[in-house]
Simulated assay, not measured.
Amino acid sequence: MAKKIESPCVSVCQLKGDLCVGCGRTVDEIRHWKAMKRPEKMKTVKRADQRLKKIPRA
Rank of each mutant, 00 (worst) to 15 (best):
M1D: 15
M1E: 14
A2L: 14
K3L: 11
K3S: 15
K3V: 13
K4M: 12
K4V: 11
K4R: 12
K4E: 14
I5C: 01
E6V: 02
E6A: 09
E6P: 07
E6D: 07
S7V: 00
P8E: 00
P8N: 00
P8R: 05
C9Y: 09
C9Q: 08
V10Y: 01
S11L: 07
S11Q: 13
V12L: 06
V12E: 07
C13I: 11
C13A: 06
L15S: 00
G17F: 03
G17P: 00
D18H: 10
L19K: 00
L19M: 05
L19Q: 01
C20L: 06
C20W: 01
V21Y: 08
G24L: 07
G24E: 12
R25T: 02
D28H: 10
E29R: 04
E29M: 03
E29A: 09
I30R: 14
I30C: 09
R31G: 02
R31N: 05
H32W: 09
H32K: 13
K34A: 11
K34R: 06
K34E: 07
K34W: 04
A35T: 13
A35I: 03
M36W: 02
M36Y: 10
M36C: 02
K37C: 00
R38M: 01
R38Q: 07
R38S: 05
P39D: 15
P39R: 12
M42L: 15
M42S: 02
T44D: 08
T44P: 00
V45A: 05
K46R: 10
A48S: 09
A48M: 02
Q50Y: 10
Q50C: 10
Q50W: 09
Q50D: 13
R51A: 15
L52R: 07
L52A: 07
K53S: 03
K54T: 15
K54L: 15
I55Q: 15
P56T: 06
P56H: 06
P56W: 06
P56D: 14
R57V: 12
A58Q: 13
